[in-house]
Design a protein around this nucleic acid. Structure first.
Length: 251
DNA sequence: GTTGAGCGTT
């Protein structure tokens, strides 16, 4: 998708991959191509997108044919304002298929047994990601500023907290105050939506009449028979009559 | 309609 050929990478033998970060979510490969093509021969422009949502993840990969052109593009386009966001262009460090990249150039895949006991210094085995990339991709965005630890595991949250202390400045007082305010604000919203504005007790369901909060009921009818063991007066009455084929006709 | 550190597809 979003690249020239629809059969994966066209030709990655001597191309130089550039990683473009901090681009807008609306920026597409077609928008980046003319911008990067001005500084050299762009072989391919690819923007990883989410499979479920289909939206861009906010970064792109631009492949140049020559290193000097790629280097020039990095220096020229790094920090350039594109679509309202200043992009960050740098050489890619990792490859799509575990290829080794030397200064952005795809050298070769990781060999199995070759020169293992050479005089080469033992580089760290843990390169970085490739094992948690799916994890952090799930919590890609927009769930970080409000509710944390709601459905994410503790290890995931801890991982993000420690690793992303970059522009994160929060004090316990601020966090506590905001949480309290937020909670109260939400409660007010619910009361406002209720037909009866009176809420004698801040806890308990605001409508203890006949419809639980689980039923998205707005008016008077539209209540199907609950599939569970709900013993609502209405449901029980209907069930007592015709539990099989009358509920559809009844209104 | 939202979000914002990072490293990629048939």
């Amino acid at each position: 998708m979003s690249h020239f050929g629809r059969s994966g990478p066209p030709d990655i033998k001597d191309t130089y991959s550039l990683l473009v970060l901090n681009i807008s979510f609306r920026t597409t490969a077609d928008d980046l191509f003319p911008l990067f093509d001005r500084y050299g021969k762009v072989v391919d422009v690819f923007i990883p997108r989410d499979r479920r949502s289909g939206e861009s993840r906010g970064f792109a990969f631009v492949r140049y044919k020559y290193a000097d052109e790629a280097q020039k593009a990095v220096e020229r386009l790094d920090g350039k304002n594109v679509d309202g966001r200043n992009i960050m262009v740098q050489f890619a460090k990792y490859g799509p298929n575990a290829e080794r990249i030397h200064k952005g150039r795809i050298v070769e895949a990781i060999p199995k047994t070759r020169g293992r006991s050479r005089s080469r210094s033992p580089r760290p085995r843990y390169r970085d990601s490739y094992r948690d990339r799916d994890n952090r991709r799930r919590s890609r965005s927009r769930s970080r500023g409000r509710y944390e630890g709601d459905r994410y595991n503790d290890r995931e949250r801890d991982y993000r907290r420690r690793s992303r202390s970059r522009s994160h400045s929060a004090s316990p007082d601020y966090s506590r105050g905001r949480g309290r305010d937020d909670r109260r604000s939400r409660s007010v919203s619910y009361d406002s939506a209720s037909p009866a504005r009176h809420s004698p007790s801040p806890v308990r369901s605001p409508t203890p009449r006949r419809s639980p909060p689980s039923s998205p009921e707005k008016g008077s009818h539209g209540e199907r028979s609950p599939p569970s063991k709900s013993t609502s007066p209405l449901a029980r009455r209907a069930g007592s009559r015709s539990p099989s084929s009358r509920s559809l006709n009844e209104d």
